[in-house]
Simulated scan of single mutants.
Amino acid sequence: MSDAKPDPGSEPGHDTEPHSPGHASRLNWLRAGVLGANDGIVSVAALVVGVAAATSDSGAILIAGVASLLAGAISMALGEYVSVSSQRDTERALIGKERTELATMPEQELAELAGLYQAKGLSPETARRVADELTAHDALGAHLEVELHIGTEELSNPWHAAFASAIAFTVGAILPLLAVLLPPPQWRVPVTFLAVAVALIITGWVSAALGDSPRMRAIGRVLIGGLLALGVTYAIGGLLGTSV
């Protein structure tokens, strides 16, 4: 009978657990994409439903829907670009400061790194040994990971964020636009409500699955909020349509 211990990677459950450094970052990107699509679904659906309640003119509905899609996608892209650019500038400044401190005061930085590991629960001797070994291997990387929780290879990319946000919004917006334009006029609003409800259920489920959170709660939030937005704009569009 062998006394060899099993490889941790082969134990039940380990093959599905996230161990790569970028796993959390990828999950955040996926979740942001799902939420961007959700924004596209709700905002464009609410607008076209409101217009459809006021007029049956397909041209007016198409113009309003396309304008909403383009404005929303551009706005989302610009917002993400500005936000992520600011984050990237901050990360670069922190990396530069840490690199300077390592070059000018290496002993103090080594003691600081050991102290950080000691604060995590390691004994002073073990913390010092870990700090020594990590500093010899990659001093900057060790400090960035433990002290600042960032990595030089994982800096946020504002262009990626902008394009991803714009694409996600556009994909989500196309559904209500098609749903309101393809059916006959008398079916436009019901079909759009149904299509949006199904889409929101899917995005809510996917968002919850990515975060491993309760599915029904997430679905309920996005579904109630989205349908409420459609109901309000439909009522306003109906009132404006009858008063014109």
Rank of each mutant, 00 (worst) to 15 (best):
I41H: 05
T135I: 03
Y81N: 04
D132Q: 09
L140I: 01
E80W: 10
L102P: 00
A32I: 06
F193I: 15
T126E: 13
A229C: 01
L47M: 13
D212V: 09
V146E: 13
L178C: 09
E147C: 00
L113D: 04
A60W: 04
I61V: 15
Q108G: 12
L155F: 08
A164F: 08
T170M: 11
P214E: 08
N157T: 03
V66Y: 03
G72F: 10
T90Q: 06
A54Y: 05
G115D: 05
P124Y: 09
T55A: 02
R217D: 12
V244W: 12
E11G: 03
P176F: 14
I41F: 13
E107N: 11
P214W: 04
E107I: 08
A166F: 14
V146H: 01
Y234T: 00
P6C: 07
S83I: 03
A136Y: 00
V44D: 07
P18F: 03
A235S: 10
F163S: 11
P8G: 09
I95H: 07
L148R: 04
L27T: 11
I74A: 14
E133I: 05
A103S: 11
E98D: 02
T55D: 02
P184L: 11
P6V: 09
A218T: 08
D138F: 00
W159Q: 09
